[in-house]
């Protein structure tokens, strides 16, 4: 069976675009400039999710060893094609996750694996990867702040705005929402 290719796909939060290929043997992303490759073999692929992010849609792939890879830049129209490829090649269902666009600043925090998800009416508003948290702080009784490490050096031109810190107001006194670990 032939390989299917998707263009203009990003790996993780990188600004480098690349090609994403799906074949019966597995899937792989290859960067256009760096030639860096992210490969996932068919026997390792466990699950896949489809989720709206800033750069259109994200394909999120879960591996048997709990590794998780994210690829941004898929178009809405790619969904059906991708869904049937995943089904036919790897026997997995592309699960769509719903995202909140309500514009509210209140919700519920939920630890999901390595991420802290902020949920608004049972839909995800955003996720914070906990391994990017450089420092966390409890200020007063109801405030928790998370500071982020910035891997970028600010030289890349197409770089987005860097989030440095987020502060939560947690009215409930019984539960401390501080992250268990810090880097």
């Amino acid at each position: 069976m032939a390989t299917t290719q998707f263009d203009q796909i990003y790996h993780g939060l990188s600004t480098e675009v690349g090609k994403f290929r799906v074949a019966p043997s597995g899937m792989a992303w290859k960067g256009a400039d760096s030639e860096g490759v992210v490969a996932m073999s068919s026997t390792d692929i466990k699950w896949a999710q489809w989720i709206r992010v800033a750069r259109n849609f994200q394909l999120r792939v879960g591996m048997r060893d709990h590794r998780k890879e994210k690829f941004d830049g898929f178009l809405r129209e790619d969904h059906d094609k991708l869904s049937s490829l995943l089904k036919n090649h790897f026997g997995i269902t592309l699960e769509a996750r719903e995202v909140s666009f309500k514009g509210w600043n209140w919700g519920v925090t939920d630890f999901q694996g390595e991420d802290l998800a902020f949920m608004v009416q049972d839909k995800v508003a955003f996720e914070l990867p906990l391994r990017h948290v450089a420092n966390s702080n409890i200020a007063g009784r109801t405030e928790v702040s998370l500071e982020f490490a910035n891997p970028s050096t600010g030289r890349a031109k197409g770089l987005g705005d860097e989030m440095m810190e987020i502060r939560f107001h947690v009215p409930g006194t019984q539960k401390s929402k501080a992250t268990g670990s810090d880097a």
């Binding site: 993780g12 939060l13 992010v53 800033a54 750069r55 259109n56 994200q58 994210k70 941004d72 995202v99 666009f101 309500k102 514009g103 509210w104 600043n105 508003a125 955003f126 996720e127 914070l128 990867p129 990017h132 197409g158 770089l159 987005g160 705005d161 989030m163 987020i166």
Partner: peptide, 26 residues
């Protein structure tokens, strides 16, 4: 898609880039 703060006047909303998500705040 530029992962930058965007002000959408029509929607009365500021959209913040948070770890790859585009998160609107009314």
């Amino acid at each position: 898609d530029r992962l930058r703060i965007h002000v959408d006047r029509k929607a009365q909303t500021v959209i913040l880039p948070i770890h790859g998500f585009a998160v609107p705040f009314h």
